[in-house]
């Protein structure tokens, strides 16, 4: 049996990248800035958004909520009277653990992009996979809570490296933890030198103003995108 070697030289995630670019084009056409918000499960993404978006001023914000199952997060954010679309990834065998460009594209018809200035895509809670899949965003942000330990940047470098901002959340708990904040900041800088780091407590509101300012500035300054 004769065999032929065929040169391919194609990125394996090329299909996802193509769709991400198509998403980007749709967002650009309607002037929508897009943030891909990621973290481990339970780091505080939804609570931080509830807190930050409550005082959004004139900016028209929409949220695309990604979860394996259910609409709990979407229901919470709907209370802010902003358009929220829930994406569930549980089709098939147990569900995808991240949002990809195709999933995001499938939700675009449910959003009226012309009536939104900022779209926050709250990704599935996961420190591994979301970092690998671009979905058409302007910027990636991640939330890292102080209850997760100082070593997370070393264990999950890709997540920390691909973000424009790292939000260290739950700082109201520092007094109750044997947690070395300086060591976390040192480790974050080791994997993403010079990255912007914010410290917040979504519970008390401390530091949330800075996160809101960052969110509302995405797409307005240049360059923000990775």
């Amino acid at each position: 049996m004769h065999r032929t070697k065929i040169k391919v030289a194609e990125d394996a995630l090329d299909a996802n990248t193509t769709i991400a670019h198509a998403n980007r084009a749709d967002f650009d056409r309607d002037g929508v800035a897009v943030v891909n918000l990621m973290s481990a499960p339970g780091a505080g993404k939804t609570t931080l958004l509830e807190r930050a978006l409550a005082d959004r001023g004139e900016t028209r914000v929409g949220v695309l909520e990604g979860d394996v199952q259910g609409s709990l997060d979407a229901d919470r954010l709907s209370a802010l009277h902003i358009p929220v679309v829930q994406l569930n990834t549980d089709g098939g065998f147990g569900g995808e653990c991240h949002l990809d460009a195709n999933m995001v594209r499938s939700a675009i018809p449910d959003l009226t992009l012309s009536e939104i200035d900022l779209l926050v895509i709250e990704n599935v809670g996961n420190l591994v996979c979301p970092a690998e899949f671009r979905v058409g965003e302007d910027a990636k942000a991640m939330v890292c809570s102080v209850t997760e330990g100082e070593d997370k940047p070393l264990k999950y470098p890709l997540m920390f490296r691909t973000c424009e901002v790292v939000v260290v959340n739950k700082i109201d708990l520092l007094a109750h933890l044997d947690f070395d904040l300086d060591l976390l900041l040192h480790n974050i800088d080791a994997v993403n030198p010079g990255v912007r780091v914010l410290q917040t407590s979504a519970r008390t509101g401390e530091g949330v103003d800075a996160f809101r300012e960052w969110l509302l500035a995405v797409g307005k300054e240049s360059p923000v995108a990775a």
């Binding site: 004769h2 065929i6 040169k7 391919v8 030289a9 194609e10 990125d11």
Partner: peptide, 11 residues
Amino acid sequence: LEVESIEVEDE
């Protein structure tokens, strides 16, 4: 993360 090449059987 690149598919560099493949080998196929000619038929």
